[in-house]
Nucleic acid binder design. Sequence first.
DNA 1: CACCTTATCAACAATGATTGTCATCTACGA
DNA 2: TCGTAGATGACAATCATTGTTGATAAGGTG
Lengths: 138, 138
Amino acid sequence: MHDVDELTDRLRGEGLRVTPQRRAVMQYLVGNTSHPTVEAIFDAVRAELPSVSLKTVYQTVHDLDALGEVRLLDVGTGAVRVDPNVEHVHHHLVCQRCGAVRDVSPEVATELPAAQRRRFTVTSVEVIFRGRCDRCAP
Amino acid sequence: MHDVDELTDRLRGEGLRVTPQRRAVMQYLVGNTSHPTVEAIFDAVRAELPSVSLKTVYQTVHDLDALGEVRLLDVGTGAVRVDPNVEHVHHHLVCQRCGAVRDVSPEVATELPAAQRRRFTVTSVEVIFRGRCDRCAP
DNA sequence: CACCTTATCAACAATGATTGTCATCTACGA
DNA sequence: TCGTAGATGACAATCATTGTTGATAAGGTG
């Protein structure tokens, strides 16, 4: 995703407003590689703005998603994860015990290279193609 | 997944019991390629056993998942999908408008062949490796 | 720079998918 | 046939997420 200043411009360009709450959410997400849940972002932002509501964070995150500045991942761990890394195509490693999400290079199609295998034991690979079926095609 | 008779044996082998409700759920799933939601299975089973509860269907589906007889897919369409095709490795096409889920051969790693592209417009590919991270390793 | 429109805010209620509780029932091995 | 552990169904509860609404404030305009 872009930096906060550029995000500010992009939001205004869409007729959206940039509030302290939104700025705090964006600030937290820039460069963040932890794939936080909305709840986690909420907690972090609340440290500075004790009165923010969870709804506001959801709203902001959805707006950023609509702008293509973040990607919302549903990796099956219950809550959606927010991924600010939209510049580089990549896949995800999801730990089924702790729920941690890490990035992987997409060069490896559906098999992890030895180096990665030492740090992550894969039990299943899920490949999902999203789009439009023939009946729903534009 | 196996046929109802074999599933019956497998369940009993695990100390689980085979009830009319469970038999109806299994019957509905054998050979089913529609990736039904639990709710859809519930509706189908209710046609024969009007008193079944949704909880019972969830229970049965989870037991079958634990036996490896079905796979539970969270493709981000809200509800979990049940996939009885565990014999053949395959990927999934998810229509973002109607939510329909179809199977794809895994030969194509992360790109669809021309033939498939004519019947499905891919807008994004998601690859998720599930397993254990180094900290959670067995 | 003050104004005014309109998006955003916070609080709260509501939804949808899924799971927990528990008293009753029943599958099935002995 | 019987006894018991597992399964059932009715219901409440949970979790993530979204809808509602009156009040507030961002920021383009004059």
